[in-house]
Design a protein around this nucleic acid. Structure first.
Lengths: 330, 330
DNA sequence: TTGAAAGCGATACCAC
DNA sequence: GTGGTATCGCTTTCAA
């Protein structure tokens, strides 16, 4: 393994000069620069990032802690983070927490031990403990969910999104929308349930909510609970994309046709939503943008470019009406 | 930042003893062990992995280089890799190559500079240059696609999968299947085109193939090309999941109903495939398993548990017949 | 079993 | 502008 001293020797200069030359220090003379580059090239020198990280007390890696890459929303966030991180010369350490606080804590621990440059996290609960990382001076930005006032966050306005969605269902002619809500301990889930509640209450319709986990099983279970216990429901507002898949499966099992027998509208747009039977109406969240902005904010913090006051960005959602929420007149 | 010498001082032992104690060296006396643990705890000592990595000349990170996490197949692989890596105490560095050799090379470079413990890669082309990494003694396992005989690989039998799929289309009563194939320079794409060719030739039907990129745009373009140029086609075999989304969109634009006006069968199963209109028939690949096995193989190599001879695992695909490939008689 | 000390490889300070 | 060198924090010989 050829190291910096080897290059130095070959080029007839000091190691420090090699370091400067290779790192673009403008004080290095052209002549030395050439000599160093040549020697490095000739020897096939490859800088050791680990050594540099130790010395510099900082790595060029950011940790991204999300519930599950299997979720399209998370995936899009991940792309956003990765794209801007790469631009900034940072790599992304991918951590799936599976909505499990213990796993999350483990990853936070690893991130700190690894001395990552920053952390982007979709915290399972509002009081996830990021102090370990924060106290080490590692910038953290929370996405999708908040993490107290002091931690930067990029979120979307779930409540408004849910309210608009439910209101749309009502306007479309559905009279009794139910809500397949996410876990009670996840922030977005209660905002969305609240938004749903806002809309039905305003319409003078009773709120009917079932809570399930943020996955397909949870969606199916919530739908089953609602369908079994509340035959009066004629439409469903669903709290996230994975749940929607479960709800749809459950409807299928019962021979209920979305958009005909049962109005359906879900949070999160996906590439397949327009291709379903019928095309799904959704509340779109700017997932890629969330990731990209989070990464941008993080890199700013890493560079120290940003004043100390915490930043809380709330991005808007967008209602995309396709077929599943329209009351068919056939 | 409290370091190992601080703990040593507090515990009244040598740094080396602290290191041994904390790393579970059995030669450490119980008494010292307790003292060290106590001191570490009291001081809130957090080992610095970077320093350890430098000293040990090895990190506990593996790089995963895939075309795009946005692809459900890649996502599933990613979960597989992450799950077994975590078990083995390794973290995953996520790298999206976007089927771009330059990006891929850049990530390979980073992986080497970062001195990762291993690399799992779905190489863009067969002659992607992993020598940089391999020569550094970093184990590499190729997934989905091969990388010469000397690099471990976990792939699936694309050709057979494609042949069976096309044969099924023919058996189902479709008479002229076309093929929306992937890029010519991607191995799986030509294996799948070959499998398609095998089946149509055996049936004495002409092969009609259009090549597109492995994404939605590519799928739409390939479908358009086929539909415009070959009105005789009555069904389509599609080379991957993302292309399928594009193909379906294109069919929709032309008012062609899958499974009725046009038989459709695609590579890659997805959570939404059964929920489409109509439910999609697919060639399922064991994506999670590919990732899991690749990671397992990699950890074995990292530990040096495995003899030097390269391992080439080929996993089987599975034809899942749903509705889109059945010739409706309505 | 424990301690002392030599590195791992790059960087950045300080002196020239 | 360049060189010498201490240092980042940990692990691991080697000697006791």
């Amino acid at each position: 393994m050829v190291k910096i001293v080897d290059v130095a020797r070959a080029a007839g200069v000091a190691p420090s000069t090699v370091s400067r030359a290779l790192n673009g220090d403008p004080t290095v003379t052209q002549e030395y620069l050439d000599r160093v580059r040549e020697a490095a090239e000739a020897l096939g020198y490859r800088p050791n990032r680990v050594a540099r990280s130790l010395r510099r007390q900082s790595t060029d890696v950011v940790a991204l802690i999300i519930p599950d890459v299997g979720n399209n929303f998370c995936t899009a966030i991940t792309r956003g983070v990765e794209d801007v991180a790469r631009e900034a010369g940072l790599s992304v350490l991918l951590c799936n927490s599976d909505e499990d606080s213990a796993k999350e804590a483990m990853y936070l621990d690893i991130a700190e031990a690894q001395r990552v440059a920053g952390v982007v996290i979709a915290p399972h609960s509002q009081d996830a403990d990021v102090s370990l990382v924060v106290d080490s001076g590692i910038p953290v930005v929370a996405i999708d969910r908040h993490l107290g006032d002091k931690v930067d966050s990029i979120t979307t306005d779930s409540r408004t999104g849910a309210r608009e969605a439910t209101a749309h269902l009502l306007e479309a002619g559905w009279e009794r929308p139910g809500c397949c809500g996410g876990p009670r301990d996840i922030e977005t889930a209660w905002w969305r349930a609240d938004g749903y509640r806002d809309a039905v209450e305003e319409a003078g319709v009773p709120a009917t909510i079932a809570h399930g986990t943020y996955d397909r099983e949870g969606g199916a279970a919530a739908a089953a609970e609602l369908l079994d216990g509340h035959p009066e429901l004629d439409s469903l507002f669903i709290s996230n994309e994975q749940m929607a898949l479960g709800v749809l499966a459950e409807l299928g099992r019962r021979g209920l046709r979305p958009g005909v027998d049962m109005g359906v509208l879900t949070f999160d747009d996906t590439p397949w939503a327009p291709l379903m039977a019928p095309p799904m109406s959704v509340v779109e969240q700017p997932a890629y943008e969330i990731g990209a902005r989070a990464a941008r904010l993080l890199t700013d913090r890493i560079r120290g470019d940003v004043s100390g006051t915490p930043c809380h960005e709330v991005l808007p959602t967008r209602l995309v009406v396709r077929e599943s929420s329209r009351r068919a007149t056939r």
